[in-house]
Structure formats: C-alpha cells, structure tokens
Simulated assay, not measured.
Amino acid sequence: MIKLIECPRDAMQGIPGFIDTAIKAAYINQLLEVGFDTIDFGSFVSPKAIPQMRDTAEVLDLLDFHDSKSKLLAIVANLRGAEEALSFPEIDFLGFPLSVSETFQQRNTHASIMEALKTVETIQNLCEVKGKKQVVYLSMGFGNPYGDPYSPELVAEFVEKLAQLQIETISLSDTIGIATPDLITQLFEVQIQAFPQIEFGAHLHSRRESIAEKVLAGLRAGCKRFDGALNGLGGCPMAKDDLVGNMATEVMIETLESEGYSLGLNKSELVEAMKLTHFVFNS
C-alpha cells in the first residue's frame, strides 16, 4: 500500500508573510477531506527560528476531523517541543530532523549530531509511554552543500543507530534537491533490504520536471511512502537561500496511478484543495 504524506507545514514554513491562523486551519481541514495517509500539519519549534509555525497549537484547535482517516504529524526539534506536541491527543506522529551533515544539524536544531541522537532516544522513550510514533527524517540524506562527509555507507551507519533505538519509520530526505534517480534507488534498495522492520519514506525536494523519475526510482527500490506538497510549494528555509520546492503531490499522484496504484483519494476534495492553495499562498 502506498502512503502519501501531505506536508502543508513544509509548504508554509519558509513563506515570509504570516498566513492567518484561520486560513491555515481551513486549508488543513480541506486536506483532511482528501484521504492522505498523514498530514504534516505544523511544528513545535522556536518561533524565532520558524515564525510561520508559531500558531501550530491554535491551528490544531481549529481542525475538524469529521470522518477523516488521515493522521497528524508535527515536527519537533528538541525535547521541549516534543513534550508540547505529546500533550495533544490529536497528534499521532512526532517528526524529528536528524541530519547526516553536522553543519546542517547545527543550523537546523542548534545541536550536534551526537546531541540530536540523544534527543531522538529521549523522544522515542516518551512516545512509547504516550502511545505515539516517532518519524526520523535523515536530512541531507543524499548529499550536502557544505563539504561535510557523505556516502551511502554513512547513511547506513545512521540507520543502524536508529534501528537500535527501535525507530520504526525513517524518511530519507533530499533537503536541497540533488538526489539522482540512481542514488535514490541505491539508497532505498540497500536500506529496505537491510532493515525490513523499518518503514522507509522519501522526503524529496525537486524541480517539477524531475518528480516522476524520482518517484519511479523510489518505487523500483521498494519505497511505498512519499512526502509531498500540492503545487510543489515550500522547501527548507534552513538549507540555503534559494529553496527547491517539495515534490508536487499532484504529479506524484499521476505518476503512481499510471503505475497502477489505487490511492483511495477523494478526487473532488483534491480539486478543492488545489484551488485553495492559490488563495492560501497568495493571501
């Protein structure tokens, strides 16, 4: 079964103008109607670092789940954020950004990789107590622009450490959009075979014209979990100045359906969500 993770949080977080809380909530409520497996809806991080996400708790209070099957994921960058996220019963997953690049780990969470791994372990213990799941994003998982060490073998070392911590979901993240189809296939194939107990996801950033080949590369390797954002909006504001957008969800849907996958989405609600993106991100 294919899992699509829709990421309005990633789409919104780098936009300089503050999006009104009610507008954010209305957009996420529409996404909840579509039938995505999970909505990456917000983050509990420093408002100084990511001011766009300072109202995540208020947005959550305005969400109306109806009969939505979608689960909620919130990003956290430290123990304080994790504890806040864990106080909300509506949140199913806590996402933590662990970087293969030391430079990016410092830029993104103001902590070393070693410190971040300790935080992952603490959050994992808290999640087990609270009945939640942690999703670890391996940022810069396909290379970095800083000259920090990188290799597929290094990625495997990180996955091994996370496996020892009983992490069940790891999303390999191409934070700056440099992954090639060959590297995507290689990384996922090796990790999926080596760690069958772990669900591996693809959080890739890409130019629109390269999305289909990247999805197909992941599929070839056995990846069944893909993150995206409608219209390919967003990118990581901590990575570098010029953002490479998220994988456009609508292109991923077209690619996956052309391969024969039935995604179980409400297409009429998807059309409405696509219309809303133009209002939300230009308001």
Rank of each mutant, 00 (worst) to 15 (best):
I75P: 01
D182I: 05
V129K: 15
V120F: 01
I167H: 03
F104W: 04
T185Y: 07
Q164S: 14
I192N: 14
F104M: 08
E90W: 12
I167K: 02
A74V: 04
F195V: 05
S210T: 08
T180S: 15
N144H: 11
A212I: 00
Q106E: 13
L73Q: 01
G143S: 14
T109D: 10
Q164F: 03
T180Q: 05
F88Y: 13
E83L: 00
E84V: 04
R107P: 00
Q124K: 04
S87W: 00
V136I: 08
A179M: 05
I167R: 07
N125H: 14
E157L: 12
V76P: 07
V159F: 04
L86M: 06
T169S: 13
L187M: 14
S171R: 03
Y137A: 06
C127L: 05
F96H: 05
G141S: 07
L165D: 11
F195W: 14
Q164D: 14
E160Y: 10
T103G: 10
T185E: 15
E83R: 09
D174E: 09
L204S: 10
E102T: 11
L187N: 15
L79Q: 14
V135M: 05
S210C: 10
L183W: 02
E128V: 03
S101D: 09
L183K: 02
E102K: 02
I167S: 06
F195C: 07
Q105C: 06
A212E: 15
K130M: 06
S173W: 03
S151M: 09
E128C: 08
L126M: 09
A163P: 02
M114I: 12
A77M: 13
F93I: 08
I184P: 01
Q134F: 02
V155G: 04
I211T: 12
I176L: 07
P196T: 14
Y146G: 11
Q106A: 12
V136A: 07
L183R: 10
E160M: 10
N108E: 12
Q166S: 09
T119N: 13
Q166Y: 01
T169M: 03
Q134W: 01
A82C: 07
G143A: 11
P181H: 05
V76S: 11
E128S: 10
V136F: 01
T119I: 01
H205A: 02
E102H: 04
C127S: 08
A202R: 03
L154E: 14
Q134K: 02
G201S: 13
P145I: 02
L172V: 08
V120T: 11
P89N: 14
